[in-house]
Design a protein around this nucleic acid. Structure first.
Lengths: 203, 203
DNA sequence: TTGACAAATAAACGTGCGTTTACTATAATT
DNA sequence: AATTATAGTAAACGCACGTTTATTTGTCAA
C-alpha cells in the first residue's frame, strides 16, 4: 500500500538519477518493481507526479537541515542574529555534515545526480541545484566567515572569497565521489584542507 | 553540403547539452534547422552517429590541447621529462587557459554540459568527463606541483593535496558559470585564489 | 541537352511512449 | 454474509519515436 508507493518513488529516483527523467519510461519503473504500469497509476496520477513527489520530499529534507544547521534558505532573514554563537568548530561541523549528507545518504546522493541531469532543461531545477549544492552552501559559509571576521576570530578578508576557496574542495569531492571506488583518500585531503585553511586565516 | 552536416552537429550538440541525448528527438534537431528528418540521414547514418561525431571531435580537440600544454593523456608517459621547464608561470597559464576554454569556447561549454548529462548512463562518457574536467586536470596539476617541489620552487607538500586544493575553485567556477549572469566577480575570486596559493606555498 | 549524382522531401514502417479503461482478486467494513 | 473500497492485471488508446523508402529538386560535367 503505502509501501508500494514508497518503492515506486525510490525506484524512480534511482532511474531518474542514472538516465534522466525523459529517458526513463513508466514501463522501466514498473518492470524494475515487478508490477504492471497500470498499478503505478493507483499511487501517482502520472509520471511527472512521481518526479514532483521526489522533489517535494527533498525540499522538505533540505528545509529541515537548514533549520538544524541555521543554514540560509530563501526565507532566511539576513538581518537576524542567528550566528551569534558562531565558532571555528561550526565550520568543521558543517563541512563534515555536508560531505556525509551528499555522499552517504542514499536519497541525497541520488537526488543530487537527478538534479545534475535536470538543471539545464528546467529553470526551477537549476535554482534548486544552486540552492542545495552550489550557491546555498557558499552563501552559508560566507555568512559564517563574515561573522567570524567581525568577532575577530579570523583575519580581515573578503568573506565571499573565503567561502568560495573553502567550499570548492568539498564541491569537487562530492562530484568526484564514486560508489565503487576507494574514496578515503579524498576525505583525508578534505580534512587537511580544512585544517590548513583555519590555520592560515585565524588571527 | 558539408555546411549542413556541420549545422546538424552543432544544433544537435546544443539540444543534447540542454536536454540530454535520449530526450532529444531527430525531429527536434531537424525542425530546429528547418529541414526534414529524412535529410538528416543523408549526412549521418543514425542519431547515435551524430552523438559519436560530437564526441570524436571533442576527443580530437582535447588531444590537441594536451599536446600544446603538455597535459596528461592516457598515452602520456609519466617517466618522461616533459616538465623540465616547469615554472610558477605555467600554473597561472594553465588556470586561465582552462577557465577560458570551458567557459568561452562555445563547443567546449556545450560539450561539458552534454557530458555532465551523460556521465551516469554511460561508463565511457563518465571516463571522458573525468579525463577532461576532473581527474585529468587534477592529475596534470599534481605532476606540475611534484616537479616544482623537486626543483625547490615550492615547499615540501603532498602534490596531490596541492592539486586538489588548487584546482577545486576552478572546477567550482566552471560549474557555476552561467551565460546570462555577470561572472566577472568569480573570475576575480579565481585570480585572488591563484595569487594567494602561490604566495602561501612558494619557498 | 542530356545524364548522373547529391540533397532534400513526404509518406510510411514498426515500436515504444504515457495514459485510460474494463475487469479481477484481496482485504476491510457494515 | 454481503458490501465496499483498495491494489492489481491486461489490453487498448492515440501519439511520437527512429528509421526506411520512393520520389522530386537542384547542380554540374559530358
Amino acid at each position: 500500500m503505502a509501501d508500494t508507493k514508497e518503492k515506486i518513488l525510490l525506484t524512480a529516483l534511482q532511474l531518474f538519477a542514472r538516465d534522466g527523467y525523459e529517458a526513463v519510461s513508466v514501463r522501466n519503473i514498473a518492470e524494475e518493481l515487478g508490477i504492471t504500469k497500470g498499478a503505478l497509476y493507483r499511487h501517482y496520477k502520472n509520471k511527472r507526479d512521481i518526479f514532483d513527489s521526489i522533489v517535494d520530499r527533498m525540499i522538505q529534507i533540505d528545509a529541515q537541515r537548514a533549520k538544524e544547521f541555521q543554514m540560509p534558505t530563501e526565507q532566511y532573514d539576513k538581518m537576524s542574529d542567528s550566528y551569534a554563537n558562531t565558532s571555528l568548530e561550526d565550520i568543521e561541523k558543517f563541512t563534515i555534515e555536508q560531505l556525509k549528507f551528499w555522499t552517504e545518504d542514499s536519497f541525497a546522493l541520488l537526488f543530487r545526480r537527478m538534479l545534475t541531469l535536470e538543471q539545464y532543461r528546467n529553470a526551477e531545477m537549476a535554482e534548486l541545484y544552486s540552492q542545495c549544492i552550489v550557491e546555498g552552501p557558499v552563501s552559508y559559509m560566507e555568512d559564517l566567515f563574515r561573522e567570524l571576521t567581525k568577532k575577530g576570530v579570523l583575519k580581515e578578508e573578503n568573506p565571499r572569497q573565503l567561502a568560495v576557496e573553502y567550499y570548492a574542495p568539498l564541491f569537487l569531492l562530492v562530484n568526484m565521489f564514486d560508489n565503487n571506488r576507494e574514496n578515503e583518500e579524498y576525505v583525508q585531503i578534505l580534512r587537511n584542507h580544512t585544517k590548513r585553511f583555519i590555520q592560515n586565516h585565524k588571527k
